[in-house]
Structure formats: C-alpha cells, structure tokens
Amino acid sequence: MISVLTFIIMIIVGATVLGFIAVSAMFLIWWERKVSAHIQTRYGPMRVGWHGVLQSVADVVKLLLKEDIMPAGVDKWIWWFAPFFAVVPSVMVFVCVPFGNIFGITLIPADLNIGILYILAITSVCILGIFMAGWGSNNKYSLLGAMRSAAQMISYEIPLILSIITVVMFAGSLSMQKIVEAQSKLWFIFQPNLAIAFLIYLISALAETNRVPFDIPEAESELVAGFHTEYSGMKFAMFFLGEYTNLFIVSAIAATLFLGGWQGPFLPPVVWFLIKTYGIITLMMWFRWTFARVRVDQLMGFSWKVLTPISFANLAVAGWALLK
C-alpha cells in the first residue's frame, strides 16, 4: 500500500519534473534561437526581457490563444492524439534521468534497475506520434514526412542500442545511477571502445531528435513542415515541446552514459550535469545551423552499411577486452 506521505512525495517530484521540463524546453527554444542567430550574424530575439529571455513565454501565450484549426478530412482520433504521443513518452523518460544529488538527497525520480532499457523502450514510442500525425493529417507532405520517419526509426535505433549496450557491458548494470558510479574513476568517453560508442550514439541521437543533418521527416525545403504541417496552436506547441524535451533527454543520456553524469570537481553535481547536458545540446545546435541535410536513402545506407557494422565490431571488441 502506498502511504499518504509517499503519495505526496510522488506528486511533488512529478510536479517538479514537469516544471523543469517546461522551463527547460522554453529555455532551449530561446537558446536555439540565440545560437542560430549568432552563427548567422544576427542578434535573435532582443525585445522581450533581457536579450529576449522571455520570448518563449510570449510565444507560449500566443500559441495558447491561437485558434485550434482542424482541417477537413482528417482522421479525427488519430489526429487528436498524435501530439500527446509525441510529448508523453519524452516526459515519462525523466523517471530515470539522474540529476545528481543535493544536500544528500539523490535527484532521480526512480532509480529503476532496468533504467536505460526503460528509456530506450519509451523513447521509441515518440515515433508513433509522428506517424499518427502524418497519417491523420490527410496531407501528402505530412504523409511523406511520416513515412520517412518510420524508415528513419528502423535505421537509427539499432546502432543507438548497440552503442548503449557497450556502455552497459562496461558498467555492468542497466541502472542509470550505477552507470554513473562506474565512471567515478574515469569517464567512459576516455576508453577507446566507448569513445567510438559515443560517436555512434551522437550520430544516432541526431537522427532520433530529427535534427540536421538528419531532419528528414521535417525537411523544411522539401516537405514544408513535414508531419506537423497541418497543426496549429497548442497542438503544434506540443510537438515543439516534445522535440525539445527529446533533445534534452538524448543529451542527458549522453552525459550520463559517457561523460560521467553528474560527477565533477568543485561544483555541485546538479550543475555539472546541466553543464554537460547543455554542452552536448549546444553542439547539436551548432551542427544544425552548419550542415546540409542528407537524403533519406543516404541516411538509411549510412546507418545500415556503416554505423551498424561498426557498432557490432565495436561491441565484439569491447566484449573481448572485458573477458581478457
């Protein structure tokens, strides 16, 4: 039986996580606009608040007040639920993200013993939302975008999982906390096998979050806005929230699995965790505003012909090294 106290704690933790997600996503949108602006010799948002920090708040208010347009001929149920399928899984993943500890309290909603497996299982569901949106919108651009995302999902998940398995082999546990603790002496990125795994993970993560050079499902210059062409108002905002939450998640996982998680000298663990995570996010933003986009068959080819074999080879070598 769940006691009242546990229940209250659960509510508080849930509210904190949700609050963090919302603030983090809004910060990331502002940060992305600022990073892109400075790469492109612009200023970006400057009017709302100091250097436009409140721009995202203004945007959210605008999106909330917008009319919710439902185009004719949509598959109503699928169309309605798609945004939730895009957001809810990425929120659920936060259950297993270790933020470190503060005043002796471990900041992880639940340290599941199958933590990383749970994360992988849940994040795969996000694609369903994209596919539902594409199918339900009754729009050819959306459908093309959704078809591409299905193809992309198949091709990137395998190297992603294989690179994570390498980490699990070295850490000897699926629990996120244990993986962090296993790196107390040396971060995993400094071991040759895991450095390769990190690169594979980073490339696959770019594909998972649909970012340049793998932003094929959205492909602005080809498919207008891809799967969310027909969405407006708060439903569109949900996709946006899901996208930026995902971005945070994949970076947080990268920081946890390869960069020693919340561990670091002098500064509090939470700060270290956020520095690492936002560092990776900034790196991904840098890619986005510099690279061109690969073609869908090139992404597939790269994943199946290059990344997957390398991951397998890397995994085999890692296993051999561990057994020795």
Partner: peptide, 17 residues
C-alpha cells in the same frame, strides 16, 4: 541553393551579408 539542401538559413545569411 545550399539552403534548399537543408543547411537552413546560415549560408543564405552569409551570402546576403
């Protein structure tokens, strides 16, 4: 042209500068 390839806006801004 490069923007059409998906390098969103950055080359265009450079060219326009």
């Amino acid at each position: 042209f490069v923007q059409d390839l998906g390098a969103f806006a950055t080359p265009l801004f450079y060219a326009f500068r």
